[in-house]
Design a binder for these strands. Structure first.
Length: 232
DNA sequence: CGCCAGGGCCTCA
DNA sequence: TGAGGCCATGGC
């Protein structure tokens, strides 16, 4: 089994980067940099959901600005997002890119949350929640899984471009592996625990930013031992 | 200046 | 199902 490899990679990442404590939420940023218990209030959960949508194919720094703007306008609020006009909302989240599409998606997800309350969704199991989230236009597999894991604290492994890049370069999957296939591989080989899935994915993102970039820094990479795509 | 970023939808085979 | 085009801003 590949279980051991995934455990070893996790340990190396954790030793080097320490706990990431995702998901970053604005009101905790200054108070609890090491916060890692997951969102608790409905407002925190909502902010994580919004962040998961805003960060689609976009750097977190640009998203952060948009979230700060949303907070300034007191728009981390289901009813207010539903009430505001799409162009006005798009202008506020402009820095996150694709703002016209994301404006619509935010409104879609809020209409969805009006229909299925947070308290109702909290009671669902992972697969039920996933089906529901995927029915929202603008929410695909990765965004749905990010919401399940980081907003609802339920166990699922989020697959993103970084996850694919790191594991395919290392030699654990093909570079064009499908979302479902890689997710299954990870969930079959990493002990199923939402805390571990949370931290593992966050560490992968950090590693992809530091070393396993588009143009990788293989020489100093902490995972270069055993990596098949290592550039000498 | 070009490249890239914590994707997803639509269209067309 | 899957490849290709499209959406868009800001950091480096």
């Amino acid at each position: 089994m590949k279980t051991k490899i995934f455990e070893q990679i996790y340990k190396i990442l954790l030793n080097n980067y320490q706990l990431q404590g995702w998901w970053p939420v604005t009101e905790y940023r200054s108070l609890h940099p090491q916060y890692s218990g997951g969102p608790t209030t409905d407002k925190q959960i909502l902010e994580v959901i919004f962040g998961a949508i805003l960060t689609q194919n976009t750097s977190w720094k640009n998203v952060e600005k948009a979230i700060v703007e949303l907070n300034k306008h007191a728009l981390i609020d289901i009813n207010k997002i539903i009430a505001i006009g799409p162009p006005a909302l798009a202008a506020i989240i402009r820095s996150s890119g694709y703002h016209n599409q994301k404006s619509k998606t935010l409104k879609e997800v809020c209409r969805f949350l009006k229909e299925h309350s947070l308290s109702e969704l909290k009671e669902k199991d992972v697969s039920q929640l996933r089906v529901l989230l995927l029915s929202v236009k603008g929410i695909g597999q990765e965004t749905a899984d990010s919401i399940i894991l980081y907003a609802f604290n339920k166990p699922i492994f989020v697959i993103d471009a970084y996850t694919k890049r790191i594991f395919s370069r290392f030699g654990l999957c093909k570079h064009d592996v499908s979302y479902d296939e890689l997710q299954k591989m990870l969930m079959d080989n990493v002990f199923e625990d939402e805390k571990l899935f949370n931290e593992y994915h966050a560490l992968l993102v950090e590693h992809a930013k530091q070393y396993c970039r588009t143009k990788p820094l293989c020489q100093e990479c902490i995972l270069n031992k055993g990596c098949q795509k290592k550039i000498k």
